[in-house]
Amino acid sequence: MDSFSLDPRLAADTLPVGDLALCSILLMDDARFPWLVLVPRRPGLAEITDLSNADAELMMRELRIATRVMLALAKPDKVNIGALGNLVPQLHVHVVGRFLSDPAWPGPVWGRGTRQSYPAHAAAALADRAAALFAAD
Rank of each mutant, 00 (worst) to 15 (best):
M1I: 08
F4N: 07
S5P: 00
L6H: 02
R9K: 14
L10Y: 03
A11I: 00
L15S: 14
L15T: 08
P16D: 14
V17H: 08
D19E: 15
C23E: 04
S24E: 13
I25H: 05
L26S: 12
L27K: 09
D29L: 10
A31K: 12
R32Y: 03
R32Q: 14
P34T: 07
W35R: 13
L36F: 07
L36M: 14
V37E: 06
V37F: 03
V37K: 05
R41G: 04
R42Q: 14
L45D: 04
L45H: 02
L45I: 05
A46Q: 10
I48T: 05
I48V: 10
T49S: 10
D50G: 01
D50V: 01
D50Y: 00
L51C: 01
N53H: 03
A54G: 01
D55R: 00
D55S: 01
E57Q: 10
E57I: 03
M60E: 07
M60T: 08
L63I: 11
R68W: 10
V69I: 11
V69C: 09
A72L: 09
A74F: 01
K78H: 08
A83E: 06
A83V: 03
G85W: 00
N86S: 04
N86K: 05
N86A: 05
L87M: 08
L87C: 01
L91N: 01
L91F: 01
L91T: 01
L91W: 00
V93L: 13
G97A: 06
F99S: 11
L100G: 15
S101W: 04
D102R: 11
A104H: 11
W105N: 12
P106F: 05
P108L: 06
V109S: 04
W110P: 02
R112C: 11
G113D: 03
P119T: 09
P119C: 10
P119D: 09
A120Q: 15
A122Q: 13
A122Y: 00
A123H: 04
A124P: 00
A124W: 02
A127W: 06
D128N: 15
A130R: 10
A132D: 13
F134Q: 12
F134C: 07
A136V: 03
